[in-house]
Simulated scan of single mutants.
Amino acid sequence: MGLPINGRQELGVHHYFNVVDFRTKYALMQENTSGSKPISLSLKADLGIVTQQNRQPIKDDLSTLTSAIISKKINEQIRLQLSPMYAYFSSVSVENRNELFSIGMGSQINFSERFALMAEYYPIIGESNPNTNNAFSLGLNIQTGGHVFQLFFASTRWHLEQYAMAQNREQFWAGDFRFGFNVNRIFGL
């Protein structure tokens, strides 16, 4: 996966790169059934680093994302989520923005204990980069006991939110989507 380095083009040729990211998430509050904590609230941070040689100092290859994740269980079948997000790129081309804002919106509808449909949408708030579309995805969670398999169709090639906010060229409803999957496992210590 890739896009022009920091959005730059040289002589009409796109230079693609890979990004390694380091992320963390910290749960501040977990929703409970008594009502004393009506929502779940987490903070998330991500640092992306371009990994291949591109004749730039590393300080120009950095991107960051900070986000709050606010979720609410409406009932046993429906969960909603809002995620205000701030992305920063250390170096961009003249037409692109260093700072981007979005309010991610998500939902999960449980069909049974094993199957759930998910949807996510990341609209840019304020100015966006030229030719950038808001990202959208649909997914299916399948729980098999200890693992959760996620199958999804997404209108972006990026797994990092800051790049989906900055460089998403695809439009989901026009048939521009990719298929992907994750396997999640939670280990208790």
Rank of each mutant, 00 (worst) to 15 (best):
M1W: 09
G2I: 09
P4Q: 03
I5Q: 11
I5R: 12
I5D: 10
I5M: 08
G7E: 08
G7M: 08
G7Y: 08
G7P: 05
G7K: 07
R8E: 15
R8L: 12
R8S: 12
Q9V: 15
E10G: 05
H14K: 15
H14P: 09
H14I: 13
H15V: 11
Y16S: 14
Y16E: 14
Y16G: 15
F17L: 11
N18Y: 13
V19S: 06
V19C: 06
V19M: 07
D21T: 09
D21L: 06
T24S: 13
Y26V: 11
L28C: 07
L28W: 07
M29F: 07
Q30C: 04
Q30K: 15
E31S: 05
N32D: 15
N32E: 09
G35L: 02
K37M: 08
P38D: 01
I39Q: 00
S40R: 01
S40A: 05
L41Q: 03
L41K: 04
L41M: 05
L43H: 01
K44I: 03
A45T: 10
D46W: 01
G48E: 03
Q56T: 13
Q56C: 09
Q56Y: 12
Q56R: 15
I58A: 13
I58V: 15
D60I: 07
D60T: 11
D61N: 15
L62Q: 04
L65V: 10
T66H: 02
S67D: 03
I70C: 05
S71L: 02
S71D: 12
K72Y: 09
K72N: 09
I74W: 10
N75H: 07
N75Q: 07
E76F: 03
Q81K: 12
L82C: 07
S83E: 15
P84C: 04
Y88Q: 02
S90Y: 12
S90V: 03
V92T: 10
S93D: 14
S93L: 00
V94Q: 15
V94M: 09
N96I: 00
N98K: 06
E99Y: 06
L100Q: 00
S102T: 06
I103C: 03
G104L: 00
S107N: 06
Q108S: 12
N110G: 01
N110L: 01
N110F: 04
F111K: 01
S112D: 02
F115A: 00
A116N: 01
A116V: 02
Y121I: 02
P123K: 01
I124K: 10
I125F: 05
I125P: 01
P130R: 03
N134C: 03
L138R: 06
G139K: 05
L140S: 07
I142C: 08
Q143H: 13
Q143A: 15
T144A: 08
G145F: 08
H147R: 10
H147K: 10
V148E: 14
Q150I: 13
F153G: 14
F153D: 09
F153Y: 14
S155I: 04
T156C: 06
T156V: 02
H159K: 11
Q162W: 00
Y163N: 06
M165A: 00
A166T: 01
Q167T: 09
Q167V: 06
Q167W: 11
N168G: 02
N168D: 01
R169D: 08
E170K: 08
F172A: 02
W173G: 01
A174I: 04
D176R: 05
D176F: 01
F177I: 08
F177L: 06
V183K: 05
I186W: 10
F187E: 09
G188D: 14
G188Q: 14
G188R: 13
L189H: 07
